[in-house]
Design a protein around this nucleic acid. Structure first.
Lengths: 100, 100
DNA sequence: CGGTGCGATGCCGAAACGGTATTGGACCTC
DNA sequence: GAGGTCCAATACCGTTTCGGCATCGCACCG
């Protein structure tokens, strides 16, 4: 499992369409489809239900979404955190969940 | 930044030697050296001090270590969490920090 | 029934990655 | 202080991975 896969999953979950999510990720549709499928294969379960209209989250996907978002947020916060020594060690992260 | 980079960083930080960490990751030394350097380049700061004995953590590396460990732990926990619907949504993660 | 919009797949060129071999530098020993 | 040792760093190369283009298959719609 990679961060790229998690990021791809979140994008598709939020957009509901592989094509649109690909656009948002500055990527074409086929590689994004492959990322999602490889993630599902790796987990051994289907995160999305394929409808003629696009992609709808399955229960497992619903459970994954908030956790994936949080992990990505923590990773995004790393560079800033490493550059500011005044953040004491006990303080650690505030887990700022994006309000979305 | 990728999970592989974070995993590599943690291994080197814990072992204090690139060579030994590579062994632990079932990898040879050169690619592991490259992973660490690419992570440092990407962050624009040095995580380790190179000594003739091996690698010693710099302050930025010290700050990264616990956060990297936590992120990796969260990722490792994902497959299990997705497979068990009885985990209610409000319960989210307990952030079980390894006792190390 | 022809058109449309969606994800899935085949194919190919480019980029990323890992391993072997080697280098360069600091220490330690005699 | 010369030779040996133990590190990480680099050069090079073969393999694998990855992305884009083109196309397919399918369900719905008019």
């Amino acid at each position: 499992m990679s961060l790229v896969q998690l990021e791809s999953f979140v994008a598709v979950a939020e957009e509901g369409h592989v094509g649109r999510a690909a656009q948002r990720l500055h990527l074409s549709q086929p590689p994004l489809t492959r990322r999602i499928r490889s993630l599902e294969e790796e987990l051994g379960l289907e995160l999305f239900e394929r409808t003629p209209r696009g992609m709808r989250l399955r229960p497992a996907g619903e459970r994954l979404l908030p956790r994936a978002r949080r992990i990505l947020a923590q990773v995004d916060a790393l560079p800033e955190l490493l550059r500011h020594p005044q953040d004491a060690e006990g303080r650690d992260e505030p887990w700022s969940e994006p309000s979305s």
